[in-house]
Amino acid sequence: MATGSTPPRFPRVALFDLDGTLLDSAPDMVATCNRMLAARERAPVEAAMLRQHVSKGARAMVAVTFPELDEAGRDALVPEFLQLYREELGRHSALFDGVAEMLRALEDDGARWGIVTNKAEYLARDVVAGLEWRQRCAVLVGGDTYPEKKPHPLPLLEAARQLGVEPCDCVYVGDDERDVVAARAAGMRSIAVTWGYRLDGEDPETWQADAMATLPHALLDPTAWPRP
């Protein structure tokens, strides 16, 4: 807590995962998988089951949708998934309640924020454009922007480099254990959020993040963010 008359401030740079952290993108992915199933005259997927796997990426979505396929069969369907997903992108998804206010609070405090996601960069850029964030998002790193993706620290380190700051000046916020692992390896503080997508049995308490948040509104309070 701050002492005296100086109010606490947000970190100078906040970096975020995208799916399951800022954006509830599961409805877009459910629609994509159901289009694939409908084309094969099969019943829709159970949305609640699919939601758990959203943070795991396109291959996980295909694996849940077509559990009878082997790895090669699933990989063969990934291009179809990505093509249809781009068509569904932003049609059904929405920001998690409180995210818009949180980002505005960061900006009002003079902080910069950006996105480091394992989503392909071209898809992430489509999302950012659809949300009218292109002028607000200070940096965007996708899962294929660099040779490594999370949990490797390289995407976070490159985001800090692009912004001209040290990793220790950043806080990374995500809903998956690999977000915390990547932040720790990059020398960044981390916040694990519990409103995103997790498999049964995944316990954020065990990830050893520097802080946890159960609702985006909690991050409107500067004291909820970990300090150096």
Rank of each mutant, 00 (worst) to 15 (best):
G73I: 03
V45S: 04
V62G: 12
G20H: 00
A129Y: 01
G187M: 12
L157S: 05
V181S: 00
L219Y: 08
L22Y: 03
E87H: 04
M36V: 01
M61I: 13
P11G: 03
L18G: 09
V78Y: 02
V62Y: 09
W133Y: 04
L220Y: 07
P79V: 03
D179W: 01
G114I: 12
A224W: 01
L140N: 08
P222I: 03
C137N: 00
V141K: 15
T214H: 12
P226W: 07
P79Q: 02
S25D: 03
I191N: 08
V54Q: 06
P7Q: 07
R198Y: 00
A63Q: 10
L220S: 03
M49S: 02
D179P: 13
D175Y: 14
D210W: 01
A63H: 11
F81P: 03
G114M: 15
G164C: 05
L22N: 00
P11Y: 02
S5V: 14
L106K: 03
R40T: 11
V127Q: 05
H217N: 03
D24P: 15
Q135S: 13
A14Y: 09
D210H: 06
D70Q: 07
F16S: 00
A38N: 03
M102S: 10
R227M: 12
A2S: 15
A186W: 06
W207C: 03
E46F: 07
R91Y: 06
R12L: 04
D144K: 08
F16C: 05
V64Q: 11
S190A: 14
M102A: 12
D179I: 14
